[in-house]
Write a protein that binds this DNA or RNA. Structure first.
Length: 578
RNA sequence: GGACCAGUGGUGUAGCGGUUAACAUGCCUCCCUGUCACGGAGGAGAUCGCGAGUUCGAUUCUCGUCUGGUCCGCCA
């Protein structure tokens, strides 16, 4: 089709130019003997001026596809809201290329349609400039990845989508085999096994923009199929690797948004993140740190405080605005994180106030005042638990709650840090055994190896997460390449020799033949795009996302299939609850 | 698996134990030469998600159910 310019690129310098434009009718303004059309294409909108006495466009409606031939002219009164606002195209000819029914949603950034409607008509939703911008940012991120990693000797390798189900970890999406009835492929939760085998295969530096699949419940920032920037390297220690990755992050921010990130990035120990920020992915754009109160309450008479962890946060200048109802909200929030309750105190006229005072001695009160450096109108929120997880994460949630409520976060600011030195294992009460905090191939810290026998809970791993604005934007680890260490880890996890052979047989075998020290990480491309696009909804950065019940509102996937298809696969549907 | 919130013209919302179910936007017709979310006049368009219950009467109250959203569990 004939087309001379992108609509959104025309400027004052183009005045006098004969142009041929194509696009969608974004808006038609009929003033009687003059008609204006806002013509939209991917690049933006330009105003077309039509004289209805010469050109009949009575039939043209919103979202018609048209071709316009005309001349660029300067406007008498520019429209400052539009990049093309200083000019308009005076039409000589308008060709209706295709008509359009009335759309179920308004095609504009400030559409009023609910997300469900938008997803049902996603192809219309995608015409909105903000979504096109998001997908453009996503594209720029992947281009920045290709560029940087290629410059640093990485090679892109594709790994199988039809793989073997991996034990541990998330629930797999399964694909039945027609050739081998009763056997199933699994879609990869990540190319973890493949990329480590590529290191055994001597590729040294691998990457892939990899689609991953996890059959778990969804969230605002989680989709069942999502994309990782998947990376693995050989012969690098943790520092060398993180430094290499920092360059990648820098290039991504620069190319996708023109933002300069200062290197090196801060590195925070996992334990500090949890104890000080109440999160393993702390947002350090605001303060509100957790403070340890174990010492203050060391002689407490209150049973609830005779526990391992007593911590508090201080919110300045809100005590007088905090009602009983507000406190109840906080307690509800804390309960979600396994806390039984919260203790709150207010500072009024230099003195603590609150029903909890009856459990506090004079010394405790003054000790609390000085430890927390309390001032008038401060609100003190205290949590106590034998579980570090419950105490810290509960307060961490309250910390985030207040950051949002009090607007403590400046928009369009970026806070990047590494969380390093993660625990190797977590104890699963449910399974009554240790489970991997990361995965079973994570390399323990050398200095902790001797603890594998005596106390696995004290063993830390050479693992790291990149945290941006409180989001886990990626994570990884160095991997075990010593077979005796790997054997030891399996023992701690309680796997028998048969388990190991059955679950990881071919993988473990590969490590017999000269495995290089290796490690890597994966960035969540969707989350990275969310952060750089400034949205908190993962669906805003994915072209065709699924809703919270893992359904595509547009195609209605997943669907039922023909009887014959099931027969071919040797599959029978048994009764199930809807 | 669980908690909470929402479901009313095409779209987004308001409302209320008895209404002609309101508003905005979109749509249709007409008027308008400088709009840019144009303006003006008129019009069409809703069995108030579904089922049961309470009631003389339910869109409104109750219960159930379905759908959507946010979160907890889960996501090595």
């Amino acid at each position: 089709m004939e087309r001379s310019h992108y609509n959104g690129t025309l400027r004052l310098a183009d005045v006098g130019t004969k142009v041929t434009l194509v696009g969608w009718v974004s808006k038609r303004r009929n003033l009687g003997s003059i008609v204006f059309i806002d013509l939209r294409d991917r690049s933006g909108i330009v105003q077309v001026n039509v004289d209805p006495a010469k050109i009949n466009i009575d039939s043209v409606r919103n979202e018609y596809v048209i071709q316009v031939k005309g001349t660029v002219e300067a406007k008498e009164v520019p429209n400052k809201n539009l990049p093309t606002g200083e000019i308009e195209v005076v039409a000589d000819e308008v060709v209706v290329v295709n008509s359009a029914d009335t759309t179920p949603l308004i095609i504009a950034d400030d559409t009023d349609a609910l997300e469900d409607t938008r997803l049902k008509y996603r192809y219309l939703d995608l015409r909105r400039p903000c979504l096109q911008r998001n997908l453009m940012i996503r594209h720029k991120i992947t281009q920045a990845v290709h560029e940087y990693l290629d410059n640093n000797d990485f090679i892109e390798v594709e790994t199988p989508i039809l793989t073997l189900s991996t034990p541990e970890g998330a629930r797999d999406y399964l694909v039945p085999s027609r050739v081998h009835k009763g056997h199933f492929y699994a879609l990869p939760q990540s190319p973890q096994i493949s990329k480590q085998l590529l290191m055994v295969g001597g590729l040294e530096r691998y990457y892939q923009i990899a689609r991953c699949f996890r059959d778990e419940d969804l969230r605002a920032d989680r989709q069942p199929d999502f994309t990782q920037i998947d990376i693995e390297t050989s012969f690098l220690d943790q520092d060398q690797f993180l430094t290499l990755m920092e360059g990648l992050i820098q290039n991504i921010f620069r190319k996708a948004r023109g933002i300069e990130i200062e290197l090196p990035l801060r590195r925070m120990e996992y334990n500090d993140a949890v104890e000080i920020y109440g999160s393993d992915k702390p947002d350090t754009r605001f303060d509100l740190k957790l403070q340890d109160l174990k010492e203050v309450f060391k002689n407490t008479t209150f049973e609830g405080f005779k526990v391992q962890y007593v911590k508090g946060i201080v919110v300045n200048d809100v005590a007088d605005k905090t009602s009983r109802k507000n406190i109840d909200e906080l307690v509800d929030l804390a309960k979600k994180f396994g806390l039984k309750g919260l203790t709150t105190l207010k500072v009024v006229e230099g003195k603590l106030e609150g029903s909890f005072l009856k459990f506090m001695s004079e010394e405790e009160q003054s000790s609390l005042m000085s430890t927390l450096n309390l001032k008038n109108n401060d609100l003190v929120i205290i949590a106590a638990s034998d579980s570090q997880h419950h105490c810290c994460f509960g307060l961490g949630a309250i910390r985030s709650f207040y950051a949002k409520k009090l607007n403590l976060i400046k928009p369009d600011t970026f806070d990047l840090l590494w969380v390093v030195h993660w625990p190797m294992f977590e104890y699963s009460e449910e399974q009554q055994r240790y489970v991997s905090a990361h995965h079973p191939f994570t390399r323990p810290c050398d200095e902790d190896l001797h603890l594998l026998d005596e106390d696995p809970s004290k063993v830390y791993a050479q693992a790291y997460d990149i945290v941006i604005n409180g989001y886990e934007a990626g994570g990884g680890s160095l991997r075990i390449y010593d077979r005796s260490v790997q054997q030891k880890i399996f023992e701690v996890l309680g796997f028998s020799q048969e388990d190991i052979q059955r679950k990881f047989g071919f993988f473990i075998d590969a490590f017999k033949y000269g495995t290089p020290p290796h490690g890597g990480m994966a960035f969540g491309l969707d989350r990275l795009t969310m952060i750089l696009a400034g949205t908190d909804n993962i669906r805003d950065v994915i072209a065709f996302p699924k809703n919270l019940s893992a359904v595509c509102p547009m195609s209605q996937a997943p669907g039922v299939v023909d009887e014959q298809q099931l027969k071919d696969l040797g599959i029978a549907i048994t009764e199930f609850e809807k």
